[in-house]
Every structure is written in structure tokens, then in C-alpha cells.
Design a protein around this nucleic acid. Sequence first.
DNA 1: ATTTGATTACGAAACAATTCGTAGATAAAG
DNA 2: CTTTATCTACGAATTGTTTCGTAATCAAAT
Lengths: 127, 127
Amino acid sequence: MAAINNLKPTESELEILQILWEKGNCTVRDVHEILEKNKDAGYTTTLKLMQIMLEKGLVARDASSKTHIYRALVNQEKTQQHLVDKMIDNVFNGSAARMVMQALGNHTASKEEIDSIKKYLDGLSNQ
Amino acid sequence: MAAINNLKPTESELEILQILWEKGNCTVRDVHEILEKNKDAGYTTTLKLMQIMLEKGLVARDASSKTHIYRALVNQEKTQQHLVDKMIDNVFNGSAARMVMQALGNHTASKEEIDSIKKYLDGLSNQ
DNA sequence: ATTTGATTACGAAACAATTCGTAGATAAAG
DNA sequence: CTTTATCTACGAATTGTTTCGTAATCAAAT
């Protein structure tokens, strides 16, 4: 499976990756119980998704005991970067600034967040 | 077609919407010639996509002459906002700040862009 | 009038993503 | 040992997206 594809997980795959990125090692049941909070799907659906992700190389698993243990194989930051770049291109005509302003405009960001972004930008422009 | 769905166009639909947002009124051929620069697909593919977008209510058209003239029906900013919010949620665990930093980190933004964002942030925090 | 070229309409194939039912394996409990 | 619960494997149905071929329509050019 080509490495480039691994940076573009589907929506369902992303939900699972988020969990794996945060938790580290998980069984299918671990993942499924977290997923269930926000959506309803059967256990075997989650299982199947994770099996497909294994085929795609998005995750790896330890199958030495009966209950397999999964972990993310793709890098969180790289994946995020790729998706954000794609959105800038695809939705904002290549303008990162426009996306940022759109993101920060609508009460999505708290004062604290905005302050930390300012600090971050100061660091950037001093380079 | 429910209004909520109109905010989540597919990737191909977004490519077309971008063109319509920028150009205003377009024929299928107008759109197709611009699309062709970046991807190759047949003319009838573009036509079909735009017909489907019509059904979904993403675009409207003037069919009074033989060559129909299309325009976007969905609002650019609302659509962008929806997609960006979704990405913040889906990819960055709800943190707008994390997404912004990721977006601005990797040479995606020029100095000018960063400056204009700073000004924008100053405006925000003075409210 | 006829031909030529561009257009729309439409069906269907190809592909991908999601969902779930069922069967078989394994381990734990009785 | 048998039952019960949990797990994996797998096939298949469903749904959505993208692609394109073909036919019908229309207008302009010859």
C-alpha cells in the first residue's frame, strides 16, 4: 500500500485513529466503546474497519493472544499536516491565512487560544 | 434536499464550487476547461457532476437558452466554516489553535500572510 | 436541406466506504 | 466435559461518488 494513501484516511478511519493516537494500545472493544458514545454502529462494524485499516497499513496489531491489540502506524502530525494542507488548497484556494481567519472568527477559539497563537506567530516571524 | 447536506459537498463538487464562487456565472464548458488544467476527466463527467449538484441544490442554472448557465447556490463562507469546524473536530480533537499552528508551521504561509493574521487577531481580542 | 459541432439527458459501470449477519475459534465458567 | 460469552474472519448488501458512452437535440455553417 502506497505511503501517500496512508495520509488520507476516511472519516471513520480518522475517528479510530484519534482514539489510537490518544490511548496508544487498544483492543477493538476499547475503541468500540469510545466510538459508541458518539455514534451507534455494531461491534463487528468497528472490527471490520480496523481490519481494513490493518490491510491499508494505517495500524498494526499484536495478534499473539486471542484478543488482538491495535496501535496506530501513521504519524499523527504528518496526517494532520496533510489534511490541513489539502483543505487549504481545496477549500480556501491555497490561502492558509484565509482558513485561519475563518477558523478563528466564529467563536471557535477562546481568548486563551488566541493568545497562544499570537505567541506562536511571534516566534515564527523572528526566524 | 436537506440544507445541512449542502454544506458538505464532495471533493469534486468543491472543485466546481470554487470555480463558480470565483467566476460567478459559468457554462459547463467554462468550468470544464478550468478543471482540465489540474485533472483529466471527460466533458460529460463535468456535466454530470454539475447536474447532480443541481439536484442537490448546490447550484442553480438558467436553462432558457440551449447552453445552460450555472451559478453557486450555497454560500462560500458558510460552507468553508462548516468544513473547517468539522476538520477541527475530526482531526484536531476540537482545538482550533492546534489546527492553526499546524497550518502555519510548515512554510504554508508567507510573512505577509502571517502579518495579516496578527492584525486580525489584534482586532479580535479588542472586542 | 444537409452536414457538422456542441450541447444536454440518461443509464450504467467502476469504485470506494460503511454496515452487518453468520460462522468458526477460543477461553472462561459451571 | 459442556455451556456460555467473546472474539476474529469473511462475505455480502447498501450507499455514495466518479466516470464515461451513447443518444437526442439544437444551432450554425456549407
